[in-house]
Write a protein that binds this DNA or RNA. Structure first.
Lengths: 359, 359
DNA sequence: GTTGGCACTCGCATACCGTGACTGCTAGGC
DNA sequence: GCCTAGCAGTCACGGTATGCGAGTGCCAAC
């Protein structure tokens, strides 16, 4: 909200077809429109920003920016607003990185210091934090189970004909799968557990093949029928076939945005937010690298949320990106601030996960 | 939506100060207002429903119903709408129980037949189902952990100085708590696990006292410092101090309701829905019996959602209510239909939980 | 290349007014 | 004593006219 206005000549890297002045005008239109949600006219620019030329000149420049596809006039006799391409240029080349307010920085650190050890709760807390600070919709894609490292398996005999296979990953997620089997001895299961633990140590869940498990069972001399049971238990624990869980927060902030006073738009967006699979699909391809991914308007690939943009930052565990956190808001969002916010939060989450790892 | 209109003389149990005709008029006003969201006038009543008297007579009756506090006139020259007390009387004494459409009945059964074994997913699926069928906001309060029965504990030695305590409840929820300790032997931990399992068998999580655990550790001859660790692990697993998790779905349906076109109202309600603790507080006192609890408007005890009503039904595991499912919608909701829907869903959930119990 | 001026466009807010849906009341009828 | 037809009064709502203001494009002059 309180982003710094562009400084004249601050364009980092003007694209070929934009000279310094045009770049500054584009950046300023973005800044002003983000701040006010009103189309920006030539008079506003000359009065609020020191441009050294008259509004007529600005009008000429803006007409050219519109011809170049960077600006749009919502209707005759209105000011201009940035187009998707305009935002894209701004984000890629003109935007000044913005440091996070120290208060916010502290808030993030405090939050993670006080965070629980349970993964579910950490995810939820992160989402809420991000929603509050961004005053937008925030969502977090939970760590994909099959990317986590295997830590421990324990087979337990509950008596009668049932047993329980408990698989624990390095992030402390325990999955228990009940199974049925003919008479087994508790001791045998304990021994089998130990063999599995040493055979599978160091692998990620995804790397564990059915063959690995089968071999261990075969060597143990226990009934071969256990193989299928255990393979199923591990498949259950790694959830390979399902999309990861998504947690969201902050939908109420949409109501503060003038672009969502229109109930039809609001409804389609709310629908997407509630349907976690749809949220995941929006960002599924952004789980690469460590840098923020920004998708603007139509780039999201969905007709229903062309009014929105999404900033996504992967977070990592060990050396691999295992999940993402994201901010979804109107296209007219304070990109620099939110990028800083999301990056900083991801950083803290990385640290937190590394610290709570079960070794 | 397609609730049956009241039949003349269908008032189940007219209260003392309402004769048959007044009761019928009240029931009909509720029915008509629920269906149309428009204040109901005397002409509508005489034309659409066979009353046998003229609109003037209805006007007189309605004036008396208003004096008695059952109806409200939003403004002069408008029809009447039910007051909280009017709805209350309707719900308690006039409403005809309504069978669920067979299609819906089947949908519910199918959904639970296909439901996963994992508790989290069952809860989420139930919430989504209820939101879709009610076309309202649905939420489910997850089973309180401390009401579940203890099933199994397994202490695992991971090596170095760390171990893991895994506690499994009868609903298949596994909680793992890492702990640090001086050198322990894996065998000792296994033996201790077994002792704990037989000592605690049959108790609910809530019934397990610190003393119970301490006694077992003492008898085992293992270091006393383990006592505190294990007590902490069990406290962690039963989550005695935290409110239970709440999952919600269907917020987008609010937008279809004329009473929430006003964005201010919408915002405060969305805020409550997103803040799960607030949702839980709305219904925390309704986890008794098996019958639906209905709270209407001001009865919810929150100024922000006086426009709403909530239908809550506890669901049970074993002999005890462990959680609740709820429908939150505008006060003007089809009570009979939603009561049937919520009850039927709770019933199916009861059955499902009983079937997936870990013995 | 820049600027002041001017005519033009168009969304938006406001005020106004007619319409229609109610009501309450009264007087007369069964 | 209850019911009803009729009537006057009230008020929200929708549509239209109007004025205002913001902003543009264009042009001639510098």
């Amino acid at each position: 909200m309180t982003a710094r206005p562009p400084q004249p000549g601050s364009a980092k890297n003007a694209p070929l077809d934009l000279d310094k002045r045009k770049a500054f005008i584009l950046a300023t239109v973005v800044y002003e429109y983000v701040a006010t949600a009103e189309p920006v006219g030539s008079n506003t620019l000359t009065q609020k920003y020191n441009l050294g030329v008259s509004s007529a000149t600005i009008r000429n420049e803006m007409a050219e920016l519109e011809a170049g596809g960077y600006l749009i006039q919502p209707h005759t006799s209105a000011g201009r607003i940035p187009s998707d391409a305009g935002y894209r240029t701004y984000v890629d080349r003109l935007m000044q990185p913005e440091p996070l307010a120290t208060g916010e920085q502290r808030r993030i650190q405090d939050e993670f210091r006080a965070a629980s050890r349970e993964l579910d709760e950490v995810i939820e807390q992160t989402t809420r934090l991000l929603g509050q600070l961004s005053r937008s919709v925030a969502f977090v894609v939970a760590p994909q189970r099959d990317l986590q490292a295997f830590r421990h398996v324990q087979l337990i005999w509950l008596g009668e004909r049932t047993g329980l296979a408990i698989v624990v990953t390095s992030l402390g997620v325990a999955t228990q799968t009940p199974f049925e089997h003919e008479n087994l001895a508790a001791d045998d299961l304990t021994r089998l557990s130990n063999r599995l633990n040493s055979a599978l140590a160091g692998k990620t869940m995804r790397q564990i093949a059915a063959r690995d498990i089968e071999n261990v069972v075969r060597d143990s001399g226990l009934p071969a029928s256990l193989e299928k049971t255990l393979v199923a238990a591990f498949a259950d624990a790694s959830r390979a076939d399902e999309p990861p869980a998504v947690v969201s927060s902050g939908a109420q902030h949409l109501l503060d945005q003038p672009e969502f006073q229109d109930l039809r738009k609001l409804r389609s967006i709310l629908r997407i937010i509630e349907e976690h699979k749809a949220l995941y699909d929006l960002v599924a391809d952004s789980m690469t690298g460590a840098a923020p991914h920004i998708k603007i308007g139509h780039e999201l690939g969905s007709d229903e949320i062309t009014e929105c943009s999404v900033i996504t930052v992967p977070y990592r565990f060990g050396d691999e990106a295992v999940g993402m956190l994201a901010i979804l808001g109107p296209r007219r969002m304070p990109y620099a601030r939110l990028v800083a916010l999301a990056s900083s939060t991801a950083e803290s989450l990385n640290d937190h996960l590394a610290n709570t790892e079960i070794r």
